[in-house]
Design a protein around this nucleic acid. Structure first.
Lengths: 122, 122
DNA sequence: GTAAGTAGTATACAAAAGGATAGTGGATTA
DNA sequence: TAATCCACTATCCTTTTGTATACTACTTAC
């Protein structure tokens, strides 16, 4: 009767595997600014300075960095127009739009959470 | 013809409001360890040291801190048993279980994302 | 008496994320 | 000649997040 309290085999293996993709998804939305950028682009294509204007508080450095990350994840497309001065347009890819459902789920849960946390203690 | 390029009124207001609850939801899952803890507890109630064993790499300090945060968000319940030595049991609240759907959505998207990012460039 | 198991805390440190501020370079405008 | 627009980059600094390691207090087992 030694060693009866083993860990059920489920967790270490099953869990770890199921956590990885969730983390991937969270990482895509992580940080202070990715969400505002994505949602802003869901309303239409925009140029660098337009996005900056629409997101109060963001610095050029952050905007640039986040856009690069979003681009490297195929969520955002960067199009350079050879005008003078050069104009760069950012747009959500089709894949980027697939985040809509994810964001909606998060928002629905978040709305309920907000209500719950604001509510007086029972 | 001065000032034709105003920002459409949609964004600043509508967007900001819709972003807040999404951020709330993301915050609840944020950090390196909350997800593993939540998923571990979805498989059953556990004690402090059991959770620690099931999550390789986590330190006592982090586990303690994350559990306190989850508790303060009503997601995890902490029950102290007056045995000797004292035993503390952690469990997901009903509300904590409501995260299942959120995590599932994130996982589904994450699985597809993983495939896409692994796939050879077209 | 010392090790191990219960559930943590304390302190110091390292790494990552983010902010503030200034600068690049070509072209147009006043 | 200086200021402005465009889309950024560079540097330095602060804040947040996470890690490493040791320690607390109590009890049982060897």
């Amino acid at each position: 009767m030694e060693n009866t309290k083993e860990i059920k085999p489920h967790s270490l293996d099953e869990c770890t595997k199921s956590i990885l993709p969730v983390r991937d998804a969270l990482e895509v939305l992580s940080g202070k600014w990715k969400l505002p950028i994505i949602i802003s682009l869901m309303f239409g294509n925009k140029r660098f300075s337009q996005i900056a204007k629409e997101i109060p508080g963001i610095t050029d450095k952050m905007l640039s960095k986040e856009l690069r990350e979003l681009e490297s994840n195929d969520l955002v497309k960067r199009t350079v127009y050879d005008s003078i001065p050069v104009v760069v347009e950012y747009s959500l890819t089709e894949y980027g739009h697939s985040l809509k459902i994810v964001i909606k789920t998060l928002r629905d849960w978040g709305v309920a959470h907000r209500k719950r946390m604001m509510a007086p203690v029972e």
